[in-house]
Structure formats: C-alpha cells, structure tokens
Design a protein around this nucleic acid. Structure first.
Lengths: 202, 202
DNA sequence: AAGGCAGTTGAACGCTCATTCAAGTCGTGC
DNA sequence: GCACGACTTGAATGAGCGTTCAACTGCCTT
C-alpha cells in the first residue's frame, strides 16, 4: 500500500472512506490523512473531489468480478447457489462490521440526490453489471427454472434483496432483516424450481 | 402553512427539504428560507440541527397511518391488494418526480453512517411500524397464504422490495427496476396463494 | 552541466456551515 | 401602566470545507 503511486493510494483511501463514512461526510483532509499525501498531490491528480469519486466508482466497477464474484464463487458450481453465495458474502461483511458496512454503491446512490451525469452513470453501470452477472447465473440454471420466467426481473430482485437487506440491517443493527429477505428470496426460487420440475411440491 | 406556529413551519420545511435533498445537503439556511423564519427562532425551538431531524422523523412516523396508508388503501379491501396498492403509491411518487423522490427514511438511513442513538432508533421505529402494517395485511389474508408461512419475513421482504426498487430506480432514472421488483414480489405471492389453495397451478 | 517537467509541499484563501447572542417585539397577569 | 417571559430578529462567530498556488524536489534528456 505504501509503495503505490500517490494517485492510487488516494483512490484506495477514498474507496475505503467513502464506504465507511459516505461521500459527503468524508473530507479531503480525511483522504489525505488516510493516503499519507498532501492537498497539492491530490489536486495534481484530480481536478475536484468529484473526480476522486468517479475514479473510486470506476475502480469499484472493475473490482466486481475479480474482487467480489471470484472469491464468493470459489468452489461453488451450482448457478443458483452462486446467487446465494454472493448474498452470503455481503452478509459476512455486515456481520464483520456490526451491520455498519454494506454496499457503498447503494449508500452513495441515495446520498447524492442529484448527482452530476458522470457520477450517476457510473452508479447506474455498477448496478447494471452486478445484475448482469446474476442474470447469467439464472440463465445457467437452464430448465431448472420455468421457461417463461423473466430472468432479468429476478436478477433485479436479487440486487433489490441485497440492497434493501443491507439498508434495514444497518438501520436496526441486526442481521434479522437481511436474513429474512434472503430467506424470502430462497423460498421464491425454490418454488420456481418446483414449478419448473413438474409442479409437485415436497 | 403560513399561519402555523413557527416551530411547525420549521418541521414541515425540514421534512420537505430532507426528502428532496437529504439531511446533510440541507442547510439551516435552506430550512429558514423555506419556513420563512430566522436563525434565532429555530434555535429557540430546537437545540441543534439534529433535533430538527428527530422532530421530522417523529412526524414522519406519526404520518405513516393517516398520510400514507389511509389514502393508499382508500377503496381497497383485499388485504393482499393493499400491499400492492401501497407499493403503487410509492411508484406514483417516483413517477411524479422523475424517479427523484423516493422514501426519505431509506435515504437518511444510508446517508448517516453512524447516527446518534435517538436518530437511529427513530429510523428503526419507522421501518418497524411500516413492516408491522404489512404483516397485519398478510395476517388478514388468512388461509389464502400457506399456514406455515413466516408472514413477518414476507413483510420485511415487502419493505425491502420498496426500498431497493426506489434505490435502483433513482439511480437509473427509470421505473424499470421498481416495476421488476414489484413484479417479482407479485409472482412470489401468487405462487404462495396457489400453494395454499391446494397446489394446482393455473 | 543544464534545462525541463512530473510530482510534492503545506500554508493560505474564500466560502459556507451550524450555532450564538444582544437587542428587540408582543401579549398577558397584576 | 408596567413588568415579565415567550418568541423574534439578523448580524456576528469560529470551525471546517474544497481548492489554489508559489516554491521546491528529484529524475530524465541532451
């Protein structure tokens, strides 16, 4: 970390702090302290604080596959289990931080009420790619799910369950709401599988 | 509005602005301008900005029943349709504001990363009461739903669908994600009803 | 050896923020 | 008619914010 170029240290520091305290509550001074840099260096690398955010959102987007999905899906082959393995990963982060650290993208999305277009588009892209990966899992599940099922719709619901679960759990400082939401999704997918396999429950 | 006591004008102004721009991005000056009051009056009524937030969250909580549920459920008797009527109400707000105005509670919950206890408890209480009303609808549905169904779990999932749908829709500036999430929930509840009524689909 | 330039330093700037306060207004009880 | 407390006024305060900049460092080129 210490031997990285200043620009990268700044982005990683901002990534960490934006996730922990949000964008608005993180000051330039906070980022400089965390990265061990000076104001001039930051403003040599980025025109404004918003450009730091843009770099962070882009780094986050690039990290979805190698940093999030790859470790979550290590040793998991079943495509439907992959969905729940990913949710379990978020649960683990909540658990490890007393329900404080959830999904930075979601926090920033609600924190900035009218974000400038480049920021909004990157937030949007982060969601779209996340949903895209889930949709691919559902496609892989093939005829285990009903043929007429709108898999994109379900993928959006999965992101929904994650973000909403994080929000409620962070608010209540309990994992109950996250677990309940995932349990609801599990029940739904189980019923979809039953329906696809002929319809006889049990 | 203009003839209300100053304290109330301030709370209503803050309610509006916190919903529109969030808590952190709303300045005391903004609230004073909106309410037509002076700094001294605000600090005569409230010790700090955070106490204004507390008053707003409490007003919001009191408003759940008369301001949100009552109009949403006007003319709706079917308990399961009540759930979707409430979601439709949120959809209407999103639609009327180009996906900008969602649920203030959710926004504030994610905006404040470590809120002081009284604030966190009021956010928590808002969610708990909302979920409680949904759970009561599901209870009213009686044996239309499976007897062994965890209705509280489903109620939490309903709030989840709303909040997650608002978040995604606000980010994409499209109602697609909200609609997809509600469609997923509808499909799930349909399948639960089928299962409770003997299990034969179609 | 000299010139140039990417990158660094940290003090300083202007602005906005939440909050304070001394001075004022008004209505009520005596 | 006067004293008192509740409420209002709006300028002032000080802290913190994002941002700027002139001076400096060290490396690469010629």
């Amino acid at each position: 970390m210490e031997d990285l170029p200043t620009r990268d240290r700044l982005v990683f520091a901002a990534l960490k702090l934006f996730g922990e305290k949000g964008y608005l509550s993180t000051s330039i001074q906070d980022i400089l302290r965390e990265a061990g840099a000076n104001a001039g260096s930051l403003y040599h690398a980025f025109p404004t604080k918003q450009d730091v955010l843009i770099a962070v959102l882009d780094l986050y987007r690039q990290g979805i596959e190698p940093m999030l999905l790859a470790p979550a899906w290590d040793g998991v082959d079943d495509p439907i289990e992959k969905v729940f393995a990913l949710l379990a990963r978020y649960r683990g982060m909540l658990e490890a931080t007393d329900c404080l650290y959830g999904c930075p993208i979601g926090s920033i999305a609600l924190e900035l009420h009218e974000p400038d277009p480049p920021v909004r588009e990157l937030l949007s892209l982060n969601f779209t790619q996340w949903v895209g990966h889930i949709e691919r899992c559902l496609d892989e599940a093939g005829d285990r799910l009903p043929a007429d099922l709108d898999r994109r719709m379900v993928a959006i619901l999965v992101l929904n369950v994650m973000e909403g679960g994080v929000m409620q759990s962070r608010t209540h400082r309990t994992l109950e709401a996250f677990d309940a939401s995932v349990a609801g999704l599990r029940d739904y997918l189980n019923r979809l599988e039953q329906a696809a396999s002929g319809g006889q429950p049990k």
